[in-house]
Design a protein around this nucleic acid. Structure first.
Lengths: 188, 188
DNA sequence: GTCTATACGGAGATAGAC
DNA sequence: GTCTATCTCCGTATAGAC
């Protein structure tokens, strides 16, 4: 019998998600995670065999989350231009978080690529999903010739402004850049 | 008498620069640095009191390096558009390094901002210098009204493509994005 | 399932001989 | 100036009582 299931694992992943976003993979230690969850260190190893397994669970959660968000946009409109603008609106709404801790995927990719290992590829796959989605919208906009390049430009801009806004700790920069990107998308 | 001065300190900074670029601040340990330099761990503390002091020296070096590079561009031309294109040419030339290890400044900013501390601000100052320089060129191009936004867009694009190319370990992506940015600059 | 105790390695940093 | 030895703390992970 599964029972009400206090499902601690999911709660732990949620806490780890925030912790890793705030401090990065290396700095987000097992000790800190256990402390924030209010459980002893050793207990975590009942749910996760290794630290990498935790980050793996986080990435899986993020992937589902983004898929869900894109699903919501697509439920509202079918127009590719509107979909890309929805993406920009989302970027603008998350500016506070971006300025405070950077992009939860991008900063993780940057860190994990230096550290190496198999998790790095899983993180990269998340960005790849975004890229593919954007590419599809540009194609549907009639830009099948340069859809790859346009998607690259957009994802690049999103990741770039996340780095800059985080570096200068200034959410307003996201607003400014979003407005420029909006104008660009509208003019295509 | 200063003497021929084997000036080990500068050599150590150069080695640390590469190590930190390759592995990041936290992963670039004193032990690895000492090993790559071929000296014992404890010896490093004769030249640098703390690890932060090493990164501080690296940042100082990078700042001088970028100033020097911009100086070279300005020695070749006075035209602001050409100067911005020089910047893009440099971006394109460094694509191998960017794909392999990311932007040496941007990735450091991302990491140090999470770790906090006074060095984070010194790293941010480096990006600020680039931003100011770009802004100046856009102003001289006759775009004084939106020079700040345009500079933000350019620096953002540079940082963004560095993240993406590094994530996918693909220098070609830098070429593609550079070409788009070139077209953008030419059309201004 | 939950917790305590601890193994074991590696981090930054210091003391002091040479 | 250079090197060895070592201190102290913290990292992941495990063993095993309850």
């Amino acid at each position: 019998m599964p029972r009400p299931k206090t499902n601690n694992r999911e709660e732990l992943v949620a806490i780890a998600e925030r912790l890793v976003h705030r401090e990065g993979y290396r700095a987000a230690t097992i000790a800190k995670l256990a402390q924030e969850a209010g459980i002893p260190r050793g207990n975590l190893y009942y749910y996760f065999k290794t630290k990498e397994e935790i980050v793996s669970a986080i990435l899986q959660g993020r992937s589902a989350e983004f898929q869900s968000v894109r699903g919501e946009w697509e439920a509202e409109t079918d127009d590719p231009r509107e979909l890309l603008l929805s993406c920009l609106a989302w970027l603008d709404r998350t500016r506070g978080s971006l300025a405070e801790n950077g992009c939860p995927i991008g900063s993780l990719c940057t860190e994990l690529n230096k550290h190496g290992g198999p998790v790095a590829k899983r993180a990269a796959a998340l960005l790849s999903e975004s890229l593919t989605w954007m590419e599809k919208q540009f194609r549907r906009l009639g830009r099948s010739r340069d859809s790859t390049a346009l998607a690259l430009h957009l994802l690049s801009a999103v990741q770039g402004i996340a780095v800059i806004a985080n570096t200068f700790d200034d959410p307003h920069l996201v607003e400014v850049e979003t407005e420029q990107l909006r104008t660009w998308i509208r003019g295509l």
